[in-house]
Design a protein around this nucleic acid. Sequence first.
DNA 1: GCCAACGTTGGC
DNA 2: GCCAACGTTGGC
Length: 140
Amino acid sequence: MAFWLFKSEPNTWGWDDQVAKGDAGEEWDGVRNYQARNFMREMQLGDRGFFYHSLKEKSVVGIVEICATAHPDSKTDDPRWECVDIKAVRPFAKPVSLDEIKSNPALSEMVLVRNSRLSVQPVSDAEWQEVCRMGQTKDD
DNA sequence: GCCAACGTTGGC
DNA sequence: GCCAACGTTGGC
C-alpha cells in the first residue's frame, strides 16, 4: 500500500466537508498541476492519505482512503485533468502542525517541507508512521 | 498583505 | 525550443 498527502484550503474544502460525504467519498477535483495529477494516476484502491489544511491551520488533521482510482475530472471538459475519489477514515486525535513536522528531523525530507506548493504528494512509509504517531492516531 | 517559489504561457 | 512575463500558491 502507498501513502499520500492531500492539501486543501479549509475554507474551500475542509475535513468537515469530507466527513459529511461519508463512505461514498468525493472527487478530489480541481487539481490543475501535472505532477499532482500523475501522483493521482498512481493511486490504488485502499491507499491511505493524510488530509492537510493549509493557510491558517497548516496541520494534518485526518486520514483518508482512496475509494476510486483516477478518472476524468467532472468539473472540467479538459481531458488532461483527472482525479481520484477519497473518503474520510478518521480524524487525528491531535492535529500535527507544519511547525512540528519541520522541527522533526525524521520528517525533513517530506515533500510538504521541500515543496510546500504541491497539492498532492507522496508520503514514505516511515513518514506515514511518524506522523500518525505524532497525531496519536492508529492507522488500521 | 507581502513576497518567494514555482508552474505555465506565449512571443520570438 | 528558449526564456521572459505572468499568475498562483502558501508560508510568514
